[in-house]
């Protein structure tokens, strides 16, 4: 009996939270680019998931393996054709296969960086805002120092010295830098605004502990901002990952930057001229991947932005073309 009552209460709570998210979603969905970003991310995600299956079942290992494949029937590099939809590069690798195979590692590095950045920035930003005083001063001084550090450059140095770093590890390194620097400062600024609100005082009068206030009041307020920072982190880390590969520090996984790099190197060494069909796909894929997460971040920006909170009050005059 009691259990049943409790269950119904829980169900109602869940449906309310869904309603809250529904409200956020409405704001988000008004931004057409954000929707495009979601669609792109879903597409890339499906590619990352489906490719390993295709590789094991449909694709002929000898022709299409991104590393070992070689088509003896054609001169390489070959232009796009029915056998190789995007052609092959100077070493005879199928471009489409490489393109698809590079999706999953890119996702891993992106997600690793985003999650790390989210954790680091919320912990640092919230502690700093909540405890203020000396804790704040020290943490923000460190954050300022991190802001001086060009994260992608640091990644290139790391990649140069440790060619064996996996995409997961690189993602965590990047996430820590990005999270401690810019993201933590922004989270702190927003958390400070929330800290000044009377509902925090009310929670304190109720007897709420610092953990209670941080988790139930501050965190839900900075959550959209943290999500936004996660998206920007993905954009940044994917480009940084491309840099590492592009500078020729080849690593133990395939990525788009490496494809661009090798296309340049081959056209230089074999004097073949620019192989546009090899160069374009990875460049476009890399930009699209980075852009997809950036688009989503623009949608999240609308949610975090207090001005755009109430469409009926504030944004009614803004047409959709103005909110890209």
């Amino acid at each position: 009996m009691n259990l049943k009552q409790g269950w119904s209460l829980l169900k109602r709570q869940v449906s309310t939270i869904r309603r809250q998210f529904g409200h956020d979603w409405q704001i988000f969905a008004r931004n057409r680019l954000a929707i495009l970003g979601v669609i792109l991310i879903v597409t890339f995600g499906m590619i990352a998931l489906v490719y390993p299956i295709l590789r094991m079942t449909v694709f002929n290992y000898k022709l299409y393996d991104p590393v070992a494949g070689f088509d003896v029937r054609l001169p390489h590099p070959s232009k796009p054709g029915p056998e190789h939809l995007l052609g092959t590069d100077s070493l005879g690798h199928d471009v489409l296969s490489m393109l698809l195979a590079a999706t999953a590692p890119t996702f891993i590095i992106g997600i690793a960086a985003a999650v790390t950045a989210a954790c680091v920035s919320s912990v640092v930003g919230l502690l700093s805002a909540y405890y203020a005083g000396a804790v704040d001063a020290i943490l923000m001084q460190i954050a300022d120092a991190f802001l001086l550090l060009p994260a992608p450059l640091f990644m290139v140095i790391m990649g140069m010295r440790f060619p064996n770093l996996t995409s997961l590890e690189l993602g965590i390194i990047y996430g820590t830098i990005a999270g401690f620097g810019g993201a933590a400062i922004l989270v702190r600024a927003q958390a400070l605004q929330v800290m000044a609100k009377p509902f925090i005082s009310a929670a304190r009068v109720a007897g709420g502990s610092s953990l209670h206030i941080i988790f139930t009041h501050l965190l839900i307020h900075v959550a959209p901002l943290v999500a936004l920072q996660m998206m920007l982190t993905v954009t940044g880390v994917v480009v940084a990952d491309g840099f590492i590969a592009f500078f020729g520090f080849t690593r133990n996984y395939l990525n788009w930057g490496a494809m661009i790099y090798s296309s340049f190197v081959y056209s230089y060494t074999f004097q073949t001229g620019t192989e546009w069909h090899v160069l374009l796909p990875p460049a476009i894929a890399l930009s699209l991947f980075a852009a997809a997460f950036y688009f989503v971040s623009r949608g999240l920006q609308d949610i975090t932005d207090p001005y755009r909170k109430h469409p009926a009050e504030n944004g009614k005059n803004l047409t959709s073309w103005q909110r890209i």
Binding site: I260, L286, S287, I324
Partner: peptide, 16 residues
Amino acid sequence: LGAVIFYTAFPPWLCF
């Protein structure tokens, strides 16, 4: 849209 494209373009590729 152009701004987004340039902003998210892979820098070495843009250099090229």
